[in-house]
Amino acid sequence: MDDAARCNALSLARIQHWMQAATTHPGGLDAGLALAGERHGLNIASVIDTPAGVDAHARLAIYADGYWARLIECLESEFPALLRMLGSQLFRFFARAYLSQHPSRSPSLHTLGAQFAAFLLHSQRRPANGARKSPTQSFALDLARLERAIAESGRAAGRERQLDKTNATSAAADATWFLTLLASDACTLSLPDTTRLLALRHAAECLRPWLRGKESEEPAEFERDYVAIRRHDYRVSMERLTDWQFFALRHAALRPATLGACARAASRRTRLQEGAVLGQLALWLPAAQQSGLVMLAMN
């Protein structure tokens, strides 16, 4: 049986699985062909029909190169500010290295960049003698973390259709609502899927222009800052937080917690008095709920 007849005899599903293994291997086409041969008992000559003088390997490489180019384009679309900062060549270098270690495993490309910021962090060399990373390096990491948080907030299942804005507004204006929050354990705080909390190494206002498609001329000096990425009425935005706001919300990020527990957690990290933190939370949280940042529930 010649190659053409053998190819016709193969099932479409078998050819598809062979081609997927061959063209998507993180080690490149040669490694993919070896794996595809082991899994499906086929070689390139038995599957790829080419005219005389045409290299089957080169023909298949078009699909393999196109697959990786498309994945890199997806990362470029999700991290446009980081792309501008690093430049196309350096960004693509890191993107290809990342995809080699974290190949796409999901039918949805929304999960592709989930570990990109962590990969960039672990790919950096540790400075000698315990020195700190350069501001430029940590600035790029903050950008990557912010852009991923923005993407996750935008794609998460939101509460826009569930919120009763009229009731939320009246509750915020009701003095009994404030007294209920002061009761500490009478109310539970949780975060919607659309909220992300980040502790930054650089001031949020230095990062904001990059997120808006511009470039900041401010020096990328170290400055601890806290932000929340939130979504309200389908619009994603970044909000700066005080330290007590950040640590109170972070306590409720994993599981719903009473306001008293959140106040105690923030007090431990900021050394503010627990009662003072609780009072500030009671004043701030109703507005935070209206903006889509948090969820409050009566116990």
Rank of each mutant, 00 (worst) to 15 (best):
M295H: 05
M1D: 02
M85V: 12
Q124S: 06
L254H: 15
T242F: 09
G87V: 13
P209W: 12
M1E: 03
R155S: 14
I62R: 06
L181M: 15
R231Y: 03
A128S: 11
R250H: 14
K165W: 13
Y226G: 08
S190Y: 10
A58N: 10
G41T: 02
S77R: 14
L10M: 11
S170T: 14
R96K: 08
A69V: 01
I62W: 01
Q280N: 12
R231E: 05
D30L: 07
P209V: 06
R84L: 04
A261Y: 04
L10Y: 07
E221S: 10
A61Q: 10
A276E: 15
L109V: 04
S184H: 11
F116L: 13
W68P: 02
Q137W: 00
T50D: 01
R105M: 07
G27N: 04
S153D: 02
G260R: 03
L35G: 01
D65W: 00
H122A: 11
I48R: 06
Q273C: 04
L285H: 10
D30T: 12
Q89P: 00
D55H: 03
L146P: 15
A4N: 00
A61C: 05
S88N: 09
G213N: 07
L71D: 09
L42G: 07
D3I: 09
L254K: 15
L285W: 11
E205V: 15
V227M: 11
M295Y: 01
R145G: 12
A34D: 08
E215V: 13
G213A: 08
T136A: 13
S170N: 12
A156E: 01
R14S: 02
T242D: 14
T270I: 12
Q289F: 04
L197Y: 15
R59W: 05
R235P: 00
A13D: 02
T24K: 07
S190F: 05
V54N: 02
H40C: 02
H251A: 15
P286G: 12
A34R: 10
A81T: 01
R264P: 01
A297S: 11
E38V: 01
A64F: 01
L189M: 07
M19I: 09
A34T: 06
A22P: 02
R268F: 05
V47M: 09
P26N: 10
M19R: 03
G154Y: 15
E160N: 10
T24A: 10
S100P: 02
N43Q: 02
R264K: 12
D3P: 04
Y67D: 06
T136S: 09
G28V: 02
P286W: 10
P209N: 04
P256C: 05
Q20S: 10
A128V: 13
